[in-house]
Amino acid sequence: MASNTADTGHGAADAVHGSSGMPQLDFSTYGNQIFWLLVTLVVIYLILSRVALPRIAAILNERQGTITNDLAAAEDLKAKAVEAENAYNKALADARAEAQRIAAETRAEIQAGVDEAIAKADEEISAKAAESEKAIAEIRAGALESVKVVATDTASALVAALGGKDDADAVAAAVAKRTEG
């Protein structure tokens, strides 16, 4: 405001309080200030209590609600993730067990085949061995028989050459006795 107005308008007040007096102590303006202050306060109070504060409270509540909901949703998703992980782990463990089972089965099967083949081979081998033994025994028996025949013949010839009487039975018995050991 123009100092002009102040000078003329408050000549009386200035005269009372001096030029550096405090306008705060000019009681003639108190009624005016108090009136407008009360009007202002009532207006602010009405605006705040009717419009501004409920609205801000609603906004804050809504935000709180949103945050709570989001947190709950996050919690849910987290639980789902854990569940999925568990399911995955379980599937993995199942698959591993299945694989082990299959491997063990296969191994057992192969083992059984191998065992069978070995048994069969053993059997064949033993059969062949028995056959061979038999043949050897036969051959040996044949050889012994031939030895006996040759020995008998040789002994008979020796006996005859030595001038002995050809006693076939005695020669045979002697040969048999000698070949026993």
């Binding site: 405001m1 408050h10 306008p23 705060q24 303006t29 009624g31 005016n32």
Partner: peptide
Amino acid sequence: MEQFTVTPLFGGDHIAWYTPTNV
């Protein structure tokens, strides 16, 4: 202290309780 002077907005000398002032 002049800055604290209460003055009527629309001229005039007298400040009544209802006068619109710089307050």
